[in-house]
């Protein structure tokens, strides 16, 4: 039950992280120029109306008191209502989160399923056509930004070839392009990481030992090399997953997916503090949990990792 204790410990450690993140964000949002009440009420509001709204929203109280009362509400899962859209943050979030999680998970799975085998194959056949091809693709994917690649793919596959829908979430085909575009960067890093890691592993002494035992080349790779070479790859997956959720902001906008990314963008534009704060807390928790899962998987693969200490 070491892992359960470890998981609990890690989840508890999320609390100070969330406090830090939210406090910094809260301060920045409060210091940002502009008057929220004026933005809500419009340009022709009177000074009394503005003062009244400020009082109603509690904005006339000191920063620290506002922060503490926000956090106390948040602990009770009351994340407030949007200032601009008049919707409940938690409700909206639970509607939008599945889309973001679906697209991010699909993107990561796509990157792993395609990237890891390609990386391993190009390490085993180092300096082959496949290897050079993979290196080229990695460079290409790393250097193309998602908003450009996404738009180009929309023009080519959706408008010219008419194979796929341009945007929306109407059918499963809508998810194909977003998955590929959002996963492109992770795909590149999966190929590169698993190739490098495999090249390191096959130089190791224990690989030579495995061959000296009478293992064929195939068995050496399957039974001895892959598991060892996956250790750094899994760590990389964790880092990329966090980045992918961030990247979803861009991809969701391009493909008009109603996920948390597009909600966050609109909230930041409209100075909608409850929505921004709420979204960031959720993302922090999600990233924290994903990192925890990654660490547990690492411990599962590598017996040298001792969760108890």
């Amino acid at each position: 039950m070491d892992w359960l204790k470890y998981a609990l410990k890690r989840l508890l450690m999320l609390i100070p992280v969330i406090i830090c993140v939210t406090f910094i964000l809260f301060v920045i949002l409060s210091l940002a120029p502009g008057d929220v009440a004026r933005m809500v009420l419009g340009a022709d509001a009177t000074a009394e109306q503005i003062a009244a709204l400020n009082h109603e929203m509690g904005l006339d109280k000191p920063l620290l008191i506002r922060y503490v009362s926000y956090m106390l509400d948040a602990v009770r899962l009351d994340f407030g209502t949007s200032w601009t859209g008049n919707f409940d943050v938690l409700e909206e979030f639970s509607f939008r989160l599945p889309y973001t999680l679906l697209v991010s998970t699909l993107a990561i799975c796509f990157a792993i399923a395609v990237g890891v085998p390609l990386g391993i194959a190009s390490a085993i056949k180092q300096y082959s056509l496949l290897d050079y091809g993979c290196t080229f693709v990695v460079m290409l994917l790393f250097s193309m930004p998602a908003f450009w690649l996404g738009t180009m793919c929309q023009i080519f596959f959706c408008l010219m070839l008419r194979w796929l829908p341009v945007s929306g979430v109407g059918s499963w085909t809508c998810y194909i392009l977003p998955t590929i575009i959002l996963g492109a960067n992770t795909l590149a890093s999966m190929i590169r990481m698993s190739r490098t890691s495999m090249l390191d592993v096959i130089k190791m002494d224990y690989i030579r030992t495995a061959r000296a035992k009478g293992n064929s080349q195939k068995d050496v790779i399957l039974h001895h090399a892959i598991r060892n070479s996956l250790i750094p790859v899994v760590t990389q997956i964790g880092i990329n997953f966090a980045g992918t959720i961030g990247g979803a902001v861009v991809t969701e906008n391009i493909f008009a997916i109603p996920g948390i990314g597009s909600m966050l963008i609109n909230a930041v534009k409209g100075r909608d503090v409850p929505v921004v704060m709420g979204t960031v807390i959720f993302i922090t928790v999600i990233v924290g949990v994903i990192n925890l899962i990654v660490d547990l998987v690492c411990a599962l693969i590598d017996p040298r990792i001792d969760l108890a200490s």
Binding site: D205, R208, T209, K213, N228, I301, D302, R304
Partner: peptide, 23 residues
């Protein structure tokens, strides 16, 4: 393949690195 490890075995210099760490 039938010879290695069956009829001819080898012991390597550095026991620290010659065993697979994950098995």
């Amino acid at each position: 393949l039938g010879l290695r490890g069956r009829r001819v075995s080898m012991i390597f210099q550095d026991p620290m690195t010659s065993l697979n760490p994950v098995k």
